[in-house]
Design a protein around this nucleic acid. Structure first.
Length: 931
RNA sequence: GGGCGGAUAGCUCAGCCGGGAGAGCAUCGGCCUUACAAGCCGAGGGUCACGGGUUCGAACCCUGUUCCGCCUACCA
């Protein structure tokens, strides 16, 4: 097969497999600059979970990042797409713990060191998956700079950040109520709590007076916590209860005397207006207790069993068992007033789904408010811009009410907190383990044993440093100087608080600058029904399965494997069989990427429509065949020198190309990837293929035409294709590279890779507005004839003669391009109408021109009458609307002059067209009667 | 409770600064026209959720309502 011959159909798999490895091998992903004064451009990838695998959200966001990166790279500046992975503390630890459980072991049996060894081993085994998948997407990130959040360099940055914040008093340790996961046995931050409404009960309990008869009724959704009650509160202005304040109650089951206190926290309108106060197990109660100097009685063990603070019968019981027993015992004692059904928000851990408990423990916190101040300002004054813009409201809302951030986790996989305690518990905080002993020796005047804090840091603490830590911070590296602040962050709204806000706080704190100038917030990728994709729903799609295709059985097996809730497997399997009876065909990476871009509408989630992906696979094939056509038609021919457009098609397509380049630039600038994709699709398919290549055929196939003229057309044809490939490359890297390698050398543009070819720029000398108008008229003429042909069911092969009459300019255009029009409309010939309109013609009307197609003998008068009536009907509606406007004095007085003129022109054209159609209709009716 | 977003063709979605409602898919009709049947040429299909307002003119601006989604919040 020669260089310029392509297979008949595009085969994504064979093309894609060739290019990525070569790009990577040759170092094309690393920053380099072809244009010395071009400014640097940098995007930090949101590091995916190192042991995770690629999902649709990654495919979506990575496509967008890669498109931005590839475009900027082609523009010539140094471009860095910093990549890497995250250690995902809790998630990864849980996976390994589950493995141990399956082996009948657990992490405590193994011990910390061996357990960590085991996690590292798991990271080594499964850690390659997601980066391999990222490569399949064509992501052109700089693998030579790949980072992992637990790399020594990054760990050093994490410790450094901790030490600096600690020394400034922005990190502190304190005994606080935190959200406690009794399954995982660790504290989690507010953000890791997912609260959802669940059905529960509201128990109304009677607390008897210590002195005298009677009781107070309090309501609770967690009766077991009454064992830790220390007071009952009423609102200070609640007249019903004012006289009770200061009296004492006997807390049932414990016998403890507890006071009635007054606090504004109580909502007098709710329930009885009396609230039980449990400072150790409720965030609000904790504050109330603190205000009133009440004791804090913790009744739970870390795994949420009742501890020894509670009466003997309850000790050791699980919280829910204890709940049942408390309720039963109160019932026995006649102290249960009633039970109401009640909907309430249940806080669960986002990983374990366990019901969390407010729990009193020693934890490390970041004092967030001072950091938030500057972070708020950065968005207010525009140093950081959210796209779409209204996300800043979400950001401000959270930032202005920010709570201190609990950063310590009682797990093992993560950055260990750089704090050591002396024999008396004095903390030594230091980035370096050796130095900390010197610090301690100095403090105590002798060498002492130190114990390191056992906890690790919240994963997001290290993620917050990602933009600068990956560039070498705290060292002052050239990379940091060059690429920081980075240009744009592309991420989902679900991690604005977790990650975006914290990067901004930390970035400003440690570098004095924002970590990125823009934040492009993407929507979520949902399934065809609009549901969030999740393993438990069984509606996950693996991007690679859209790329490579997958048969039904494998898909079912994949979706039902390793399910957290195996009982759902049958349902998932059935749904999968119903949705994909044939499995999923292979669409290829480029088609998937193009679909992602086309669907990337701002501020909206994506419902993934596989038909759309399929459509863009077809687009790949279309492009492939267009290139095939071009190559076939230039093979063996010399191309003319500089581009010189002589013919209407050549001049038209070049002019259109300039507009597409401008539109593409504008769309990418505004992060309107949907517009970018739609614009290229329309141009290449709807204009280049449907019209230009068809218009070129009569030129190339005309034996009477000089070779020199054909040569110019060939040049234009290749030039436009070559430019289009460059424009398309950011969205469809593989097919464009493959084709460009064959096409570009023909116009002396070849190079080692399209990745580093220059980005197209508008050449205004090719723009030609009036020529475009003329071309549009030509196309309208062709369409008009085709329309008649289609409606009349005249075989496409049948050549038709036409008669025209019209304004001289219109006829002149027809005359100038008669050959072209004849081929495209399959005309036998044309002549200007002189005299009467013959009988039995079909009529088409264009601005300034009437076209009559003699169809005597083959025309069906009934069909033509119907066609004309239909056209007329539409026209009448248009005309009524337009004349309505023109008869409106208000419109004439207020509308802009050009709008009025436009309406007047429309009215004239519509009136003229109506006349022609009415005449045609009359003639056809006569013919119908004769027949 | 507060905030944000959505409702446009059968489906998925565009519609920019207010000025003749669009695309892809699906449907219908005709085509193996020598790049492409993963294709070509045509066609049909819309009470722009509903009510009011502003305006000469509203899918678009204002307002109210309904429905759907998401985020957020301390009602025991």
């Amino acid at each position: 097969m020669s260089d310029t011959t392509l297979p008949k159909a595009y085969d994504a798999a064979s093309v894609e497999s060739r290019w990525y490895a070569l790009w990577e091998e040759r170092g094309y992903f690393a920053p380099s600059s072809t244009t010395p004064d071009a400014s640097p451009y940098c995007i930090m990838i949101p590091p995916p979970n190192v042991t995770g695998s690629l999902h649709m959200g990654h495919a979506f966001q990575d496509t967008i990042m890669d498109a931005l990166i590839r475009q900027r790279r082609m523009r010539g500046g140094p471009v860095l797409w910093q990549t890497g992975t995250d250690h995902a503390g809790i998630a990864t630890q849980m996976v390994v713990e589950r493995q141990l459980e399956a082996e009948g072991s657990n992490r405590h049996e193994l011990g910390r060191a061996l357990f960590l060894e085991r996690v590292w081993k798991w990271k080594g085994e499964s850690g390659g998956t997601i980066v391999r998948q990222l490569r399949r997407l064509g992501a052109s990130c700089d693998w030579s700079r790949e980072r992992f959040t637990m790399d020594p360099e990054l760990s050093h940055a994490v410790r450094e950040a901790f030490v600096r914040l600690y020394n400034e008093g922005l990190i502190y340790r304190g005994k606080r109520l935190v959200n406690w996961d009794p399954v995982l046995l660790t504290a989690v931050s507010d953000l890791e709590v997912v609260s959802e409404e669940e059905r529960g009960s509201l128990w109304h309990l009677r607390y008897p007076w210590a002195e005298g008869d009677g009781y107070v009724v309090v309501a609770t959704t967690r009766p077991e916590t009454m064992l830790g009650d220390v007071a009952v509160a009423v609102h200070p202005e609640d007249e019903r209860h004012a006289h009770l304040v200061g009296r004492e109650l006997i807390l049932p089951l414990t016998g403890r005397r507890i006071p009635v206190i007054a606090d504004t926290h109580v909502d007098p309108a709710f329930g009885t207006g009396c609230v039980k106060i449990t400072p150790a197990h409720d965030f609000n109660d904790h504050e109330v207790g603190a205000r009133h100097g009440l004791p804090v009685i913790n009744i739970f063990t870390p795994d949420a069993r009742i501890n020894d603070q509670a009466p003997e019968p309850y000790r050791g019981l699980d919280r829910f068992v204890a709940r049942a027993k408390v309720v039963e015992d109160l019932t026995q004692a006649g102290l249960l007033e009633r039970i109401d059904d009640h909907k309430l928000m249940i806080p669960r851990g986002d990983r374990t789904k366990a019901v969390l408990e407010p729990y009193l423990t020693d934890q490390w916190f970041v004092k967030a408010a001072p950091l938030a101040e500057e972070a708020i300002r950065a968005v207010e004054d525009g140093r950081i811009r959210f796209i779409p813009g209204n996300w800043d409201k979400t950001y401000f809302e959270w930032m202005r009410n920010i709570q201190d951030w609990c950063i310590s986790r009682q797990i093992w996989w993560g950055h260990r907190i750089p704090v050591w305690y002396g024999p008396d518990g004095h903390p030594f905080v230091c980035n370096c383990e050796e130095m900390v002993y010197e610090m301690a020796a100095e403090h105590y005047g002798q060498v002492v044993r130190l114990t390191r804090d056992p906890d690790v840091l919240d994963t997001w603490f290290s993620s917050a440093l990602w933009p600068f830590a990956t560039l070498g911070w705290p060292r002052k590296t050239p990379e940091l100087a060059r690429y920081y602040p980075t240009d744009v962050l592309v991420t989902g709204f679900d991690i604005i608080f977790f990650w975006v806000a914290r990067m901004i706080m930390m970035g400003l704190k440690f570098t004095g600058e924002v970590p990125f100038r823009e934040v492009y917030i993407t929507g979520l990728v949902r399934d065809a029904d609009g549901n969030k994709m999740s393993k438990s729903k069984g509606n996950i799609l693996d991007p690679l399965d859209l790329i490579d295709g997958i048969d039904l059985e494998s898909l079912v097996e994949k979706r039902t494997r390793d399910m957290m809730q195996p009982q759902l497997a049958a349902k998932v399997a059935a749904a999968t069989r119903a949705e994909f009876p044939q499995g999923i065909p292979a669409f290829g990476t480029d088609a998937l990427r193009f679909a992602m871009a086309a669907l990337a509408v701002q501020g909206r989630d994506i419902k993934l429509d596989l038909a759309r992906v399929e459509g863009y696979r077809n687009f790949c094939n279309k492009l492939w065949n267009a290139a095939r056509f071009v190559l076939m038609n230039v093979e063996g021919h010399a191309l003319a020198g500089p581009v010189e457009a002589r013919t209407l098609p050549d001049r038209w397509i070049l002019s259109r190309l300039q507009k597409v380049i401008a539109a593409m630039d504008a769309a990418m600038e505004r992060y309107r990837f949907d517009e970018a994709a739609a614009g290229l699709h329309r141009f290449l398919w709807g204009e280049f293929c449907d019209w230009y290549l068809e218009m070129v055929k009569p030129v190339l196939y005309d034996d009477g035409l000089a070779e020199a003229d054909k040569s110019h057309t060939r040049r234009v044809m290749v030039t436009v294709l070559e430019s289009s490939l460059r424009l398309l490359h950011p969205l469809m890297p593989f097919i464009t590279e493959e084709l460009w390698q064959k096409v570009a050398p023909l116009v002396e543009r070849g190079g080692a890779t399209l990745m580093r070819a220059p980005w197209p720029v508008v050449e205004s000398r090719f723009e030609d507005e009036s020529l475009e108008t003329e071309a549009e008229f030509v196309m309208a003429m062709v369409t008009a004839v085709r329309n008649v042909r289609g409606e009349m069911d005249i075989p496409p092969g049948r050549r038709l003669p036409v008669l025209v009459s019209g304004e001289p300019e219109a006829v002149a255009i027809l005359r100038r391009h008669e050959g072209l029009i004849a081929v495209l409309a399959r005309l036998e010939g044309w002549s200007e109408l002189t005299g009467e309109i013959p009988e039995g013609v079909a009529t088409a009307v264009l601005p300034g021109m009437r076209i009559f197609i003699p169809l005597a003998g083959i025309i069906d008068p009934t069909a033509e009458i119907a066609r004309l009536e239909k056209t007329l009907q539409k026209l009448e509606a248009d005309l009524t609307r337009v004349t309505g406007k023109l008869n409106n004095a208000g419109f004439l007085a207020n509308a802009k002059p050009e709008v009025v003129a436009g309406e007047q022109a429309k009215a004239r054209a519509f009136t003229e067209k109506r006349q022609v159609l009415e005449d045609a209709l009359a003639r056809m009716r006569r013919l119908g009667e004769v027949a």
